[in-house]
Design a protein around this nucleic acid. Structure first.
Lengths: 344, 344
DNA sequence: GTATACAATGAATACGTATACACAGCGATC
DNA sequence: GATCGCTGTGTATACGTATTCATTGTATAC
């Protein structure tokens, strides 16, 4: 009991060679049915499980995927992680999770080259990080989820942030809003960039300008949204609608508005991005652009498995639509909007 | 470039044997300083990282900890996971994350015996699951975090749920509440049991009885809290205070109350448990019992590392205090409470 | 000047599995 | 009845590292 039994121990018990045990374990067809049955019986009685390390060493496959993520406590990331775990587990893969928030580049690089995993899923690619480059260069199959990097020769699955943002912008413009607040992120991801460009494009088409004083650049936390709301809404002529890049920021903005006694949507409309579970809670009841988390994860893991099987297959970049989900933080029908843009 | 370089390749380059390279890698003192320098130079130039699998196979240590968790999207669990990741990473350990929500027992058992990790952290032990038993029997060092199992010979680190609940109960009793609602969990954990017993003990001491009609047993989701609030608060004589087992349920209750037009804390006080980040958001401003997440995780990982180093060390059960954090979902001072219990 | 201790290194092995290779048995084919 | 192919099995090896053991060279003690 002290030392776990090995395939060799079991071979002795079953009266066969270790090779035969191994053949049974790997479902090798070239083994006599009777022998197979006998071995299986012994395996079962001994409650034997193959040593995953030795197997991985021999086959070069660990059946484990490395996931790089930041800020697990952020609702969207938590949902993404949950989904990744679910899908990986459903196809028999383990997950090693690395939170790379505070880790120095050197230690990340070590991790990348340790050959501990068959592939990487990166969910937080930004232009000022070298993680994605290092991952691709490590030679281990890599897929970027949720955040992409333009021009990187690497499979990527992202929501159509430009389109989602565009729809949000058009929705506000069609409702007649002209004083629009934009709470943007300071970091350098593809995602936040497109979530701004698409939004601006829609407003441009409608002839609506976003004033400089209605643009705030902030960090990613709830408190940042809170502060942004204070800034935007305490102006003499505050915006009648605010759009921001993530639900978490929107929650902060909503709280900031409440603290000022500004009502949503009566005094100001609010649109977020991600459609996290929380957005549907009555506390927030947030109009937001939905990310197709399930499809993103499923497609991404599909691509990753394909690439693991065939490293030479051509790189794919998949973009999935992001539908606008209208809730109570904006008027429920465009018709009702007329009242909102009026006052301050 | 196709095949990653091995220590043997590097040995050839440096003009030494593979054994010497290995000695350099493991900081073996018995190697000539000049030789060491030369080898290190070659290692650096080749950007070499040892194959973690081969190393693990030889040493029997993977420097990886397996974490079992459920419902990563739940705010408390996400914070717990985040903290676990931070602490593990700070001591140079990797994390394999298993979400065991839907996995059949057999596949979990396989995972436990694969010897992929040096130890297990279990965060979701319940009496109707056999996970903890299987983990302990696997022979791999195991620590229970956050949820304990009475009588299990296994290191455990938990918050003092009884004391935290007791404090919450006394706080309500001292504020003069007599019509108290209890939203309890249907599952069979230590945690939820003590969070009920402690609360009841405090009320008993104060001579306050919880009426059957003010007791609701529910699931763990936001929607469950919401439904519970509807049930409790739509009575002719609704409770003037509600206590529940988790913040997530409290958020649901708060939303349920809002949907009914019941004001918190004016019409009803509300107390949760966990002190998640969200509890401090203005949307919730929730009085709650704080779990010492950082201390729980740090202590737990400490215990686990100790046990990995010395499997024979005696089992420890650590209980950490849970302070009550008073916020706006209850009156801010006990003195102000007099007004609340009065009406309905 | 030989014997002894010690430092530094290389050769060989083991971790537990998967698999290439060799080989025995045996039916079918000419 | 010898050759061929095919099935099932065992033997041997390799994955990449850490480590034991043997060996060399050098300094110290007699």
């Amino acid at each position: 009991m002290s030392r776990p039994p090995t395939s060799r121990d079991l071979a002795r018990l079953a009266g066969v060679s270790q090779a035969t045990v191994s053949r049974v374990l790997t479902n090798n067809p070239k083994v006599n049915p009777e022998t197979r049955a006998r071995v299986l019986q012994v395996l079962k009685e001994a409650n034997y499980t193959p040593n995953a390390l030795a197997r991985a060493m021999k086959t070069g496959r660990t059946d484990t995927i490395g996931v790089f993520m930041t800020r697990v406590t952020s609702p969207f990331h938590a949902e993404l992680l949950d989904e990744i775990g679910r899908v990986l587990s459903s196809v028999g893969l383990h997950m090693i999770l690395w939170n790379i928030e505070h880790d120095p580049e050197e230690s990340v690089s070590k991790v990348l080259q340790q050959r501990l995993v068959d592939g990487f899923l990166l969910t937080s690619a930004t232009y000022d990080s070298t993680l994605h480059t290092m991952a691709v260069e490590s030679g281990t199959p890599t897929v970027l989820l949720h955040r992409g990097i333009d021009g990187l020769d690497c499979d990527q699955v992202v929501g159509d942030n430009w389109q989602g943002a565009y729809d949000a912008g058009r929705y506000l413009a069609e409702a007649g809003h002209t004083e629009i607040g934009l709470v943007r992120l300071e970091h350098t991801g593809n995602t936040s960039r497109d979530r701004e460009l698409g939004f601006r494009a829609a407003l441009d088409e409608a002839g609506v300008k976003i004033k400089a004083r209605n643009t705030v650049t902030v960090g990613v936390q709830h408190a940042d949204g809170h502060a942004a709301a204070q800034k935007l809404l305490s102006q003499k002529k505050p915006p009648t609608a605010i759009y921001t890049m993530t639900d978490l920021l929107a929650f902060g903005i909503l709280d900031g508005a409440r603290a000022l006694g500004v009502r949503v949507p009566d005094d100001v409309w609010l649109i977020g991005y991600d459609n996290t579970d929380l957005a549907a809670w009555e506390s927030f009841d947030l109009t937001t652009v939905a990310q197709p988390i399930h499809a993103i994860v499923e497609t991404g893991i599909d691509l990753l498995r394909r690439r693991i099987a065939d490293p030479e297959s051509p790189t794919e970049i998949v973009t999935l639509p992001c539908p606008l989900v209208v809730r109570g933080s904006t008027a429920n029908t465009p018709a009702a909007a007329g009242s909102a843009p009026a006052g301050g």
